[in-house]
């Protein structure tokens, strides 16, 4: 019987180049924005990434006003962080129907792009990603470090769009955080589109 059962596998703990932190934001209006932001956990192996992902709620099950953020260790998921303040984000805005059809698979694909360093030599420019669950339409964004680095930003945008499987004629825009923070009106101008 002992011979028939397979040997216990030793997992080698596959280790991607970066350690990542997963954050959770829950909109409690009685608290400050900072107080609502919580670090859930960090991981630096593929096994620990999945142990975390498999353990937490899917984005589509979160209450409106909540966010998940995945950022490289040492970068806080806010514009003001030293690594984010000269940067921006590729923003994907979803309609209400897409919460059911696309949100969870788009967010997982985003996580896989980050953890898997999908952006080739420009992966160093990636800071993290955020998913916002909102009644008026959910959003997913990939944050990069430098809005002036055209080559890195456009490469990241093209790869990201391809990985999500978005149709060619659908465009996504990249906005700097400073523009988003200082916008007047409901839309921020795009520095780049793909």
């Amino acid at each position: 019987q002992r011979a028939a059962s397979p040997p216990r596998q030793r997992f080698l703990r596959w280790r991607p180049p970066n350690r990542w932190s997963l954050w959770f934001f829950k909109n409690d209006k009685s608290k400050t924005w900072q107080a609502n932001l919580r670090l859930i956990s960090k991981f630096d192996t593929v096994e620990d990434f999945w142990a975390l992902y498999n353990h937490i709620q899917l984005s589509s099950n979160l209450m409106s006003g909540c966010d998940y953020s995945l950022f490289k260790d040492g970068i806080e998921p806010m514009w003001e962080d030293e690594r984010n303040k000269r940067g921006g984000r590729w923003l994907l805005t979803l309609n209400k129907q897409q919460r059911r059809s696309d949100l969870d698979r788009f967010w997982l694909e985003t996580l896989l792009c980050l953890v898997g360093e999908a952006f080739d030599d420009h992966s160093d420019d990636v800071c993290g990603a955020v998913v916002n669950i909102r009644t008026k339409g959910d959003k997913i964004a990939v944050w990069t470090a430098d809005y002036d680095n055209r080559e890195a930003v456009t490469h990241i945008g093209r790869v990201y769009k391809e990985r999500l499987g978005l149709p060619m004629k659908m465009t996504i825009g990249y906005q700097s955080h400073t523009d988003t923070a200082t916008k007047s009106g409901s839309t921020t101008k795009n520095k780049f589109v793909v």
Binding site: W14, L112, E117
Partner: peptide, 20 residues
């Protein structure tokens, strides 16, 4: 080039015992 982890490689770990 830099080391990448292919998505299918990563997905292959999702339901391994160490990950659940």
């Amino acid at each position: 080039g830099k080391r990448q982890y292919d998505r299918d490689f990563l997905l292959g770990f999702q339901f391994m015992p160490a990950c659940i």
